[in-house]
Structures are given as structure tokens and as C-alpha cells.
């Protein structure tokens, strides 16, 4: 498989959120604003890139009988390190994302890539695959987060300072002032409906360009 193929698989063709439908718990729960979605997407991407590289690096020493516990161990170790670092250096964001950082461990997309790709390929392709899959997942979080934030509060990029520091405190855009908001978009049900609409959009785009 060429690098271009790996990247297009991750971002579009085999997008973990839109096509594989993996990792729905964090995707649906944390996509209430663009910034929350983006932050969780980046943390997931980092986890995927590191776990794919680490697993590919040790793939010859892992016997098939113990591969699953070892994958879980490696992924959990990486996520714990990321959680500690966020707790220390992105405290506000850590508080906002809360339980969903440790829950990255349970994102099936990560162990899925370890099993399907990283345990069978060398380090560089595995790293690229992790990055591409992570970015594809972030893209889904970003789109769904944007859709829901606009519909539920009429704004975009609010609280950008949590992720980008003080310089971003003015980035928030109020698209509709005096907007009462569609409550459904903020609730879990709206999250499912939004994801469904985005998948429908992706499929119809694909049919159109076929």
C-alpha cells in the first residue's frame, strides 16, 4: 500500500467515524462544540500515532497469544501519559474534556488499527496510518462539533482559548445574535442525527463523483 493510499484511507475511504463507525462514544459525546471536538480529536490522533508506532516497533516480539492484552497495555500506558501531561499543562481543557480523555483507551478505532495495520506493517507506514486515521476522526469531530455548535448556540469556536491560549480568546464568532438555539442539537439525540446527516452527505458526495 502506498502512503497516498494510507492517507486517503484514513481521511476519507475508511474514515473511522464515518465509514467504520468506530469510537462513537467519544465522537457523539464530545462533539458539542468545535473546540471540544478538535481537542479530543488531537488527543486521539496523538494516541493513534504513538500506539501504532510502538506496536509496529515491537510487533516481532509479540506472540499472537498475548497480542490483545499487550495492545491494551500499550494503549492504556500512552493514554495515561497524555492524560497526565494535559492535567499538568492544559488544565482548563482537561477539566472540560473530563472523563473522555481516559476513555480514549476504549476507542475501538485505536485497538482496531493496532490489530489490522500496525501489527503487520513497519514503523513509518504505521505512524502515517495512525496520523491519517486520527486526522480523519478529528475531521469528523470537527464537522459534527461545528454543526452542533452553530445549531445549538449560534456561535463557532467559542472558548478557543482553552486549546490555543489567551491569544485565541477573541476567536469565538457569534453568527446569530439573539439566537435561542435548537436544544436538540446540544442533546445526545441531536448528536446521532447530526452524524447520520454527515454520513448521508459523504455517501451522496461519493455517488455524485463516481
Amino acid at each position: 500500500m502506498t502512503y497516498t493510499q494510507i492517507i486517503s484511507n484514513g481521511l476519507w475511504k475508511n474514515n473511522q467515524a464515518f465509514v467504520a463507525l468506530l469510537g462513537l462514544c467519544p465522537l457523539l459525546a464530545v462533539s458539542n462544540t468545535v473546540i471540544n471536538g478538535l481537542a479530543l480529536g488531537l488527543a486521539t490522533t496523538l494516541t493513534l500515532a504513538l500506539s501504532n508506532s510502538a506496536i509496529s516497533l515491537v510487533r516481532h516480539t509479540i506472540q499472537p497469544e498475548i497480542r490483545l492484552p499487550l495492545f491494551v497495555l500499550i494503549i492504556a500506558g500512552i493514554v495515561t501519559v497524555i492524560e497526565l501531561l494535559m492535567h499538568a499543562y492544559f488544565y482548563e481543557l482537561y477539566k472540560t474534556l473530563g472523563i473522555f480523555i481516559p476513555l480514549i483507551v476504549t476507542n475501538c478505532a485505536i485497538i482496531g488499527r493496532a490489530e489490522v495495520f500496525a501489527s503487520k506493517n513497519s514503523v513509518l507506514p504505521s505512524l502515517i496510518d495512525g496520523l491519517a486515521m486520527g486526522l480523519g476522526f478529528s475531521l469528523a469531530l470537527l464537522l459534527l462539533g461545528g454543526l452542533r455548535e452553530i445549531l445549538s448556540s449560534g456561535s463557532l469556536l467559542s472558548q478557543a482559548e482553552l486549546l490555543f491560549g489567551d491569544m485565541a480568546s477573541q476567536w469565538g464568532i457569534t453568527l446569530l445574535s439573539d439566537y435561542s438555539g435548537v436544544l436538540l442539537a446540544a442533546l445526545p439525540a441531536g448528536s446521532f442525527i447530526g452524524l447520520g446527516l454527515l454520513i448521508a452527505l459523504k455517501n451522496s458526495l461519493e455517488n455524485y463523483f463516481k
Binding site: V58, T61, I62, Q63, I66, P69, L70, L73, I74, A76, G77, T80, V81, L84, L85, H87, A88
Partner: peptide, 20 residues
């Protein structure tokens, strides 16, 4: 092998924990 992997990963997590 399981034991070695566990030790290395626990070591890594403990190191980051003490640093942060």
C-alpha cells in the same frame, strides 16, 4: 514477555507521573 512489557510501561507512566 508480558512481564517485561508491563514493567517498561509502568516505569514510563510512573516517570511521567513524578515529573508532572
Amino acid at each position: 514477555r508480558l512481564a517485561i512489557f508491563s514493567t517498561v510501561i509502568i516505569g514510563l507512566v510512573s516517570f511521567v507521573f513524578t515529573q508532572t
